[in-house]
């Protein structure tokens, strides 16, 4: 039985510098590697379209957090009526964030972004080699690599557990959701981010399940690819939220 060593050169889509790029490349980046699928230009097209859809789709997420941010900044500087004295006072109460725990969470999320990228490259490679592997009698040998997708899901869940603990730490310091405007915003921003990240975890789990269902690797790759870009966006968004909450207390 012939064995072909994987010496094919695979063009990866360019990830823009600095680890965890923002928006996925709308065109250009996706063009080359889509066609390495050889006889299935359809998948390349679909990948490009899905990436475009994602780039468009994260715009409202950005708008959502822009709205929260503007509300946050405005509320911070807003004098409010004190009913007891009937005067306008500044009642903003800076929240004492459990920043060590949040820093740990940040590291977990950044590492998950890295493993997500590894998973994305892994499946890109698999998708590129799939046509070769489908030739009868050709085997590329077992690919020895970690299940990065699973690792990312675990790390993502770890981040959510960490956020849960951070909320617990906030409560132990006396900052509940309705304690003050500042604490409401902390829960709001971290909570909305957690919900969006949970959506990413669902998408990853879907991709992991479809790998068991023997869906064609090219189709699975599209799910993993756009979830990866979304995941990097989530990491950036978290850094932004963390910075906002720390700097503009």
């Amino acid at each position: 039985m012939a064995t072909l060593s994987p010496t094919l050169s695979v063009k990866y889509p360019q990830t823009r510098g600095g680890g965890g790029a923002g928006a996925p490349p709308i065109s250009g980046g996706g063009d080359g590697d889509g066609r390495t699928g050889g006889n299935s230009p359809d998948h390349g097209q679909r990948l490009r379209r899905a990436r475009l859809g994602l780039a468009v789709g994260i715009t409202p997420v950005i708008m959502l957090f822009v709205s929260f941010t503007s509300a946050y900044i405005v509320r911070q500087g807003l004098p409010t009526l004190d009913v007891r004295t009937n005067t306008y006072v500044h009642d903003w109460m800076p929240v004492n964030l459990p920043w060590v725990l949040l820093l740990v969470n940040t590291v977990i999320l950044l590492v998950s972004s890295l493993t997500m990228e590894l998973a994305r490259r892994q499946i890109t490679r698999q998708a590129a080699l799939a046509p070769v592997q489908s030739i009868p009698g050709v085997s590329l040998g077992e690919e020895r690599s970690l299940p990065w997708l699973g690792v990312t899901v675990v790390l993502g869940l770890g981040f959510l557990v960490g956020q849960w603990m951070a909320w617990g730490a906030l409560e132990s310091r006396g900052f509940y959701l309705a304690t003050s405007a500042s604490s409401s915003f902390v829960y709001l921003l971290t909570g909305m981010h957690a919900i969006h990240l949970a959506g990413g975890i669902l998408a990853l789990s879907y991709a992991a399940i479809t790998s068991l269902l023997r869906k064609p690797v090219e189709a699975r790759r599209i799910v993993v690819d756009i979830t990866a870009w979304y995941w990097h966006f989530m990491a950036l968004l978290w850094i932004y939220i963390f910075a906002l909450l720390e700097i503009a207390r």
């Binding site: 959701l177 309705a178 409401s184």
Partner: peptide, 28 residues
């Protein structure tokens, strides 16, 4: 695409004010 995300944000804050006791929009 740009406008409905903002309305969604406002709606979330309003639902929180109504049901979770926050005070984004309600003065004292």
């Amino acid at each position: 695409l740009l406008a409905f995300g903002v309305l969604l944000a406002a709606g979330i804050l309003l639902l929180m004010d109504r049901n979770l006791g926050t005070s984004f929009f309600v003065p004292g």
